[in-house]
Amino acid sequence: MMRPVLYTCARSRGLRATWAAEEAGVDIELKMLPFPPRYKAPEYLEINPLGTIPLLIEGESRMTESCAIAHYLATRSGYTDLAIAPGEADYAEYLDFTYHADATITFPQTVYMRFALFEKDKGWEEAGLAYAKWFWKRLVKVEQRLETREFLCADRFTVADICVGYALILAKSVGLDEGVSETLRAYRERLTAREAYKRAAERELQQCNDEQAR
Rank of each mutant, 00 (worst) to 15 (best):
T98C: 05
M63Q: 11
A127F: 05
R194S: 09
E119V: 00
K137S: 14
V174Y: 02
K120F: 07
C163R: 14
F151Q: 06
L55F: 08
D177C: 12
E58Y: 11
A74K: 04
E119F: 09
A101S: 13
I162M: 10
W124P: 01
D121S: 13
P54S: 02
E189S: 09
R62G: 00
S181L: 10
F115L: 12
R138V: 02
A83P: 02
Y112K: 04
F107C: 03
F107K: 06
G175A: 12
R138M: 09
I105Y: 09
A193I: 02
L73S: 05
L152W: 03
E119G: 01
E125M: 06
F118K: 11
A101E: 02
F97D: 03
A193F: 01
A160W: 00
L146H: 04
R190V: 05
K172V: 15
V111M: 10
A171K: 01
R190N: 12
R185M: 08
K172T: 14
I105C: 08
A132L: 11
T64A: 15
I57L: 13
G123C: 14
L184T: 10
A89M: 13
E88D: 12
T148P: 04
D155T: 10
G87R: 02
I57S: 08
L117Y: 05
T148H: 13
K172F: 08
D96W: 03
L146T: 06
W134P: 00
A132G: 04
L117T: 09
E189K: 09
F135V: 01
A101D: 01
L95W: 04
W124Y: 11
T192C: 12
E182C: 01
V159S: 02
M113H: 07
A154C: 09
A70P: 08
L184Y: 08
G123H: 13
V142E: 12
R194C: 08
I69L: 06
L55Y: 05
R62W: 05
G87V: 05
A167L: 12
K172M: 14
I69N: 03
D102N: 14
R76M: 14
S66M: 10
L95A: 05
T98I: 02
L168W: 08
V111D: 04
G123K: 12
T148N: 15
R138L: 12
Y112I: 11
R76F: 10
R114H: 10
R62K: 15
V111L: 14
S77Q: 12
E126T: 15
G87P: 05
D90E: 13
A68T: 13
A85W: 02
H71Y: 01
K172R: 15
T158P: 03
Y72Q: 03
A171L: 06
K141F: 10
E93G: 01
E178K: 04
L56K: 09
H71M: 02
D81N: 04
L184W: 07
V140F: 01
Y79Q: 03
L95D: 04
D102H: 15
D81W: 00
Q144G: 13
F107R: 09
K137F: 08
A70V: 09
A89C: 10
E195R: 04
I69C: 01
T158L: 06
W136P: 00
Y166N: 14
S173L: 13
